[in-house]
Protein backbone atom coordinates (compact mmCIF):
# COMPACT_ATOMS: atom_id res chain seq x y z
CA UNK A 1 0.00 0.00 0.00
CA UNK A 2 1.38 3.37 -0.99
CA UNK A 3 0.65 6.37 1.23
CA UNK A 4 -1.49 8.99 -0.49
CA UNK A 5 -2.27 6.82 -3.51
CA UNK A 6 -5.70 5.24 -3.60
CA UNK A 7 -6.75 2.19 -5.61
CA UNK A 8 -8.52 4.42 -8.13
CA UNK A 9 -5.27 5.93 -9.38
CA UNK A 10 -3.62 2.55 -9.78
CA UNK A 11 -6.59 1.02 -11.57
CA UNK A 12 -6.78 4.05 -13.87
CA UNK A 13 -3.10 3.65 -14.68
CA UNK A 14 -3.44 -0.07 -15.42
CA UNK A 15 -6.51 0.53 -17.61
CA UNK A 16 -4.64 3.20 -19.56
CA UNK A 17 -1.71 0.81 -20.08
CA UNK A 18 -4.14 -1.90 -21.18
CA UNK A 19 -5.69 0.30 -23.86
CA UNK A 20 -2.29 1.60 -25.01
CA UNK A 21 -1.44 -2.07 -25.54
CA UNK A 22 -4.63 -2.75 -27.49
CA UNK A 23 -4.06 0.37 -29.60
CA UNK A 24 -0.46 -0.62 -30.28
CA UNK A 25 -1.48 -4.15 -31.22
CA UNK A 26 -3.96 -2.87 -33.78
CA UNK A 27 -1.85 -0.09 -35.32
CA UNK A 28 1.71 -1.46 -35.22
CA UNK A 29 3.09 -2.76 -38.51
CA UNK A 30 6.14 -4.47 -37.02
CA UNK A 31 6.01 -7.91 -35.41
CA UNK A 32 8.32 -6.96 -32.53
CA UNK A 33 6.18 -3.89 -31.92
CA UNK A 34 3.06 -6.05 -31.76
CA UNK A 35 4.80 -8.35 -29.29
CA UNK A 36 5.69 -5.36 -27.11
CA UNK A 37 2.06 -4.21 -27.20
CA UNK A 38 0.92 -7.64 -26.02
CA UNK A 39 3.45 -7.49 -23.19
CA UNK A 40 1.96 -4.15 -22.13
CA UNK A 41 -1.48 -5.75 -21.94
CA UNK A 42 -0.22 -8.65 -19.82
CA UNK A 43 1.74 -6.35 -17.52
CA UNK A 44 -1.28 -4.10 -16.98
CA UNK A 45 -3.27 -7.11 -15.82
CA UNK A 46 -0.46 -8.18 -13.48
CA UNK A 47 -0.47 -4.67 -11.98
CA UNK A 48 -4.24 -4.94 -11.61
CA UNK A 49 -4.01 -8.18 -9.67
CA UNK A 50 -1.38 -6.90 -7.29
CA UNK A 51 -3.22 -3.63 -6.61
CA UNK A 52 -6.58 -5.31 -6.02
CA UNK A 53 -4.97 -7.83 -3.72
CA UNK A 54 -3.15 -5.21 -1.66
CA UNK A 55 -5.93 -2.66 -1.35
CA UNK A 56 -9.12 -4.75 -1.24
CA UNK A 57 -8.21 -8.24 0.03
CA UNK A 58 -4.93 -7.97 1.98
CA UNK A 59 -5.49 -11.17 4.04
CA UNK A 60 -4.69 -13.66 1.27
CA UNK A 61 -2.09 -13.28 -1.47
CA UNK A 62 -4.07 -14.96 -4.25
CA UNK A 63 -3.70 -11.97 -6.55
CA UNK A 64 0.01 -11.62 -5.99
CA UNK A 65 0.58 -15.27 -6.84
CA UNK A 66 -1.57 -14.92 -9.93
CA UNK A 67 0.61 -12.04 -11.13
CA UNK A 68 3.73 -14.20 -10.67
CA UNK A 69 2.17 -16.84 -12.90
CA UNK A 70 1.26 -14.20 -15.47
CA UNK A 71 4.86 -12.98 -15.62
CA UNK A 72 6.24 -16.51 -16.01
CA UNK A 73 3.78 -17.52 -18.69
CA UNK A 74 4.24 -14.23 -20.53
CA UNK A 75 7.96 -14.98 -20.69
CA UNK A 76 7.27 -18.40 -22.20
CA UNK A 77 4.89 -16.85 -24.68
CA UNK A 78 7.45 -14.23 -25.71
CA UNK A 79 10.16 -16.85 -26.15
CA UNK A 80 7.96 -18.91 -28.45
CA UNK A 81 6.83 -15.86 -30.42
CA UNK A 82 10.43 -14.68 -30.85
CA UNK A 83 11.46 -18.14 -32.08
CA UNK A 84 8.74 -18.05 -34.72
CA UNK A 85 9.66 -14.45 -35.64
CA UNK A 86 13.33 -15.38 -36.13
CA UNK A 87 12.33 -18.29 -38.35
CA UNK A 88 10.03 -16.02 -40.32
CA UNK A 89 12.80 -13.42 -40.69
CA UNK A 90 15.11 -16.08 -42.13
CA UNK A 91 12.52 -16.93 -44.74
CA UNK A 92 11.30 -13.44 -45.66
CA UNK A 93 14.08 -11.05 -44.53
CA UNK A 94 11.52 -8.60 -43.16
CA UNK A 95 9.41 -8.08 -40.06
CA UNK A 96 6.90 -5.73 -41.61
CA UNK A 97 3.39 -7.17 -41.63
CA UNK A 98 2.69 -5.74 -45.10
CA UNK A 99 5.55 -7.76 -46.57
CA UNK A 100 4.65 -10.90 -44.65
CA UNK A 101 1.04 -11.23 -45.65
CA UNK A 102 0.54 -13.87 -48.35
CA UNK A 103 -2.96 -15.03 -47.52
CA UNK A 104 -5.91 -12.81 -48.33
CA UNK A 105 -9.66 -13.30 -48.50
Amino acid sequence: MILGVSIYEILTLSTIIFFIGVYGFVTRKNLIGMLMAVELILNSTALNFVAINKYLYPDLIEGGIFSLFIIAIAAAETALALAIIINLYRLVMSLNTDNLETMKN
Binding site: L31, I41, E77, I84, L88, L100, T102
Partner: peptide
Protein backbone atom coordinates in the same frame (compact mmCIF):
# COMPACT_ATOMS: atom_id res chain seq x y z
CA UNK B 1 5.42 -19.67 -40.05
CA UNK B 2 2.95 -16.93 -40.86
CA UNK B 3 0.14 -19.06 -39.42
CA UNK B 4 2.19 -19.66 -36.27
CA UNK B 5 2.93 -16.00 -35.61
CA UNK B 6 -0.70 -15.03 -36.24
CA UNK B 7 -1.90 -17.70 -33.84
CA UNK B 8 0.52 -16.81 -31.04
CA UNK B 9 -0.09 -13.06 -31.25
CA UNK B 10 -3.87 -13.35 -31.29
CA UNK B 11 -3.75 -15.96 -28.52
CA UNK B 12 -1.62 -13.63 -26.38
CA UNK B 13 -4.06 -10.76 -27.00
CA UNK B 14 -7.00 -12.98 -26.09
CA UNK B 15 -5.39 -14.20 -22.89
CA UNK B 16 -4.63 -10.58 -21.96
Amino acid sequence: SEAGIKLILSAALSSG
